[in-house]
Amino acid sequence: MAENLLEVHDLQVHFRTDGGVVRAVDGVSFHLERGATLGIVGESGSGKSVTCNAIMGLIPTPPGRIAGGRVLFGGRDLVQASAREMRRLRGNEISMIFQDPMSSLNPYLKVSRQLTEVLELHQRLDRKAARKRGIEMLEHVGIPDPARRFDQYPHQFSGGMRQRVMIAMALLCKPRLLIADEPTTALDVTIQAQILELIKQLKEDEGTSVILITHDLGVVAGMADEIMVMYAGRVAESAPAADLFRRPAHPYTRGLLDSVPRLDADHDELKPIRGLPPIVTKLPPGCPFAPRCDFASDACRRDYPAAKTIGGEHFTHCHHPLQEVSA
């Protein structure tokens, strides 16, 4: 087995709200091999973004706090790391790109300043060298006329180009882990295709490991090696990509697959998941998906199901998995 770059064990992230303590992430465990891509799929409120913010040490405290678990990155536990250590890691060894590039770029600063800052801070490059490297990076992510664009402000870039700038910024220090949180959700499909192609290419060139957070099953299908499906702060199912699509074991995964129209399929009736998305302050005891699940039994409403192995790296938290469980 290849070496794990990242291991997350039993992560718990709680937020204190007026409605009580929200367990935004509740016992999430996974690992990411060097050079691999993990897709995290879930709907709003599933805890997929909070999980990654916790890895980055970006949980606002208070109201949030990491209530338990370990995040091992290259052997170090990031939950225990000091603020100073985290600052050294962020942008250097772990980088993140976000859904909305406009709100993640500083509108008052030229792109040049935002790109060179990282290099001067982490790599101790001088102005001139940082500038050269910055322009190279813009070219690398496919921005035409990079030397001129370098001294422009974010608003002078289109949505797709801004996302390229974000990616350039994230990759400047050749991070070992890139976390992409819905990187293409705000973009048009033809631009989405460009950006996904770019991430794939950079991954091949640099050997970066990637965590791709998305609600779009199509996006992970083409990008991820492993996929983890989250629901209401918990892992519903985790499997190698091909397995997950061919043999989904959790009724929620099955439901998601049945409810999205496919461009290559006929006008069949979609089978929606009934009911409403969970309200994170009012989760039921037992399995959070039980109120919407066609297979729910008394056990589901009472106890949260332990992980069951379907085979190999494929496991699910379900009392009544749709696939046979291996011993």
Binding site: M161, T190, A193, L217, G222, F245
Partner: peptide, 27 residues
Amino acid sequence: QALISAVPIPDPEVEAQRSRVVLEGDV
């Protein structure tokens, strides 16, 4: 043609075999 080829399909096996027309530039 480009638009259709850019739409991701939720099936890794189909995705692996598709050829994609990636358009250059922005609208």
